[in-house]
Design a protein around this nucleic acid. Sequence first.
DNA 1: ATGGCATATCCTATATGA
Length: 288
Amino acid sequence: MKIATYNVNGIKSRLPRLLEWLEREQPDVACLQELKALDASFPQAELKQAGYHALWKGQRSWNGVAILAKGVQPVEIRRELPGDPSDDHSRYLEAAIDGVVVACLYLPNGNPQPGPKFDYKLAWFDRLIEHAGGLYSSGHPVLMCGDYNVVPTDFDIYDPKSWRKDALLQPQTRERYQRLLGQGWIDAIRHLHPEAAVYTFWDYFRQHWQRNAGLRIDHLLLNAELAPALKAAGVDAWVRGQEGASDHAPTWVELDLKKLKSGKTASATREPAAKKAAGKKAAAKKSV
DNA sequence: ATGGCATATCCTATATGA
């Protein structure tokens, strides 16, 4: 089972590229961010034609998230991040697909910082951490993926120099990402490729794609129940090189769910993994 | 400190993104 996350940067103008990628890579599940479209403008018919059922949560002009699943309807669990009823941004969807809980999130960018947008980012992140704690120990296999708008360490960017003041690299942002990982989550790309410079975003300026000057900001996190199924992880970077591409590339994990059937299936009675003294240490550690 | 580019909308301009 291949599950991907892809910030499409406008689903209406990106639809041809999206369909091309789905056709070529055939992900079983695709979590999309930045639809930048109202619910009524979501291209449900075209995606159905391509074999994908969908849940979506749109918004005029900005934000917007969706979960696509090949051949099956994703079963909606929730369509907002708990903790602030006044938050009207469309940034979160959660669904069950083939026994896996899939969370699709679009964490606020937070620029410029400091300022109200950065405050909103940190508050949203705190709410995510709170909710993620419950998901982690739910007893179900969980994948929490999306555009986190966090460059976790300086190793996850081509050169941090000109990005030092950016919201994506701030210590407060990184500390929260580490706190999230401290719950025990596995960052799939970094776990399987500890030494590799892996990027998921290349901005439209200064020929950053051509120079491979990228950032790793799209992440897929697995809880302990799902971790045994992790087979591979990567980035479909070719998508970024297409004409009329999003500035993000699809990022994915390949799961072998059969690995979960041997006594580790999602059962509500399963004891939550009470692990991760190591994770807490990592959270306290300063990133280089 | 700004801009480079791209998308969307209240479109000879402005907001947002990262």
